[in-house]
Design a protein around this nucleic acid. Sequence first.
DNA 1: CCTGAAACCTGTCTGC
DNA 2: TGCAGACAGGTTTCAG
Length: 277
Amino acid sequence: MPELPEVETIVRALRNGGRGDASILHRRIQSVDLRWARTLASSEAGEFERRLIGQEINDVARRGKYVVIHLDGEFLLIHLRMSGDLRVETPPLAPPSTHDRLIISFTDGTRLVFNDTRKFGRVWLTKDMNSVTGSLGPEPFDSGLSPEIFFHNLHSKKKYIKSLLLDQSFLAGLGNIYVDESLHRANIHPLRPSNSLSPDESGRLLEAIRKTLTDGINNNGASIDWVYRGGDFQNNFRVYQQTGKPCLVCGTPIERIVSGQRGTHFCPRCQPKGVVV
DNA sequence: CCTGAAACCTGTCTGC
DNA sequence: TGCAGACAGGTTTCAG
């Protein structure tokens, strides 16, 4: 589900409050209720609970699509995958909901709830964050990711640009929505080989990715169906799930193809297959 | 190295 | 109304 803007929105809410949630900073863990064992990616349930209890939340951050919760000398990492969400509850507490997978209760009576309909989400507890996030590519907003380096990276691979942008080891944080939206903004066909992009196209693409993600964050992410709450970016989609509707730029109907088992939306006129000079 | 398919899951929507 | 099939914001693993 959540891509970078949705995860960023959740992280900001957990850190500073917002989106209907109270901040969880500086709360201390009193008890842990693991309701779906396979939510744990690393440790075993008993050890996981024993290690968590007594630790304090020192910070909440994001790396790629991971929520990174800083504890006392170790990290609780949460990946929301397709349908995960996090919420903070304050008394009076209601009974757990159907799809609550992990409930972390704090000593002050509040709690952090990980809800995940499709059970794809995973949680890690580790002292070595790198063992989980070490294979991720750069953050899209990393100032070290210059147009020159991005161009070089694109040309070190020859995958379809759509597939490459979804590859978290190439660039961390993009998912199906923001890739389709970025490619449309940059006027690049999703099935262009990554090493066929010109320097100009490469530069446009990096700019488009950053602009699209910024728009997403400023709209608190995108809410679709029951999966995510609070965001408005779904009202600004250019191509994602707009099949058959006129392109906002040229009026040509948006097309949908499948690439890498992912629905892929694009404007056949604005995003031609050949290089546009 | 690259692509596609399957697997992990539940829920919604569409069409017959 | 029922039911089959497609589809869904992600990632990993395996076959070709």
